[in-house]
Simulated scan of single mutants.
Amino acid sequence: MDRLIYTAMSGAKHIMEKQATTSHNLANVSTTGFRAQLDSFRAIPVIGAQLPTRSFVVDATVGSDFRPGAIQQTGRDLDVAVQGQGWIAVQLEDGTEAYTRNGSLKLNENGLLQTQSGASVMGDGGPIAIPPDVNISVAKDGTVTSIAADYKPGAPIILGRIKLVNPPEESLVRGDDGLFRLKEGGEADADVNVALIGGALEGSNVNVVESMVDMIALARQFDMHMQLMKNVESNEAKAAQLLSLTG
């Protein structure tokens, strides 16, 4: 009975944590470029001289689901979607580099090309600056060009090329801000094979139906663990009664 308490108690605790992960995924079903978080359960023994047969259930986060989301055409010049595998490199306020699939870009008050969250899009030599009063276009290879927006447009001017990377998926870790970074730190090398789709955005890869089914299954599993703990309590009470009769 004692061993069952360890398993039921820790199992219920981590089922609640997995429910939180599933809820987080569902909350981001409409977030551009979002990658669903994955979890798995495993059992580990309790270390101790008097506890050789006890074990805990642990929710081990596997990582992220890197399957691509659906591409949605927007027609907006500063919207880009990564085609297939790859990432857009951005620079954070502390100067470090991170990676995103959210290609909804904007210009800040200084003319820097940024994500909607304010991270600067990295180019070949740093952040990409856009002059005023121009029309912007982004090519398949990430090249950003401008054409004067006045009545007499001139030749296109290349302003830079967005840094596109494709590090191994197992080397990436998700940060609290939703951006990905290299586990070992540092910066990934640019990959010329990564391509963009202009005037489009990539949707979240969260499967709503699958996530809802998971939520229902997790709720039933939690109820089962609670029932196991009630059974343990009942068995211990009956055992105590038997011991009192034989004492």
Rank of each mutant, 00 (worst) to 15 (best):
I197H: 06
S117R: 13
G160W: 04
T22I: 14
I136S: 00
P167L: 08
A139G: 13
G33T: 06
I88T: 01
E210K: 14
R101I: 06
V206H: 02
Q50E: 12
Q114K: 15
G175H: 10
M122L: 13
V194L: 05
A217I: 03
L107W: 06
T143Y: 00
R174G: 07
K230W: 11
A81S: 00
T100W: 02
F222A: 11
A89Q: 04
L112W: 11
G33W: 01
L243K: 10
A27Q: 10
G48H: 13
P156H: 12
A217N: 14
M16D: 06
F66D: 02
D214H: 09
I157A: 09
I216N: 07
K230T: 12
F180Q: 09
V209Q: 11
A36C: 13
M215A: 12
K238F: 11
L228K: 02
A12F: 03
D141C: 07
E233C: 07
H14K: 05
N25T: 03
T61C: 00
A188M: 00
V58E: 08
T53V: 15
S117A: 14
K163Y: 01
F41Y: 12
S211E: 13
L182C: 08
Q50M: 13
Q72F: 01
E202V: 06
G48T: 08
A239Q: 10
F180S: 04
T96M: 13
I128D: 03
M122W: 01
G11L: 08
N193M: 09
L201Q: 04
Q19V: 10
S104H: 10
A60K: 06
K18E: 15
M224R: 08
A219Y: 02
V192Y: 09
T246A: 06
D177R: 07
A200Y: 00
L245Q: 11
L4Y: 00
G247H: 04
L218I: 01
S137T: 12
A49E: 09
S10D: 02
G69S: 02
D2H: 10
S204I: 11
L112P: 03
V213W: 03
R174L: 14
A219W: 02
G186N: 07
F34W: 00
Y6Q: 08
L38M: 15
A217C: 01
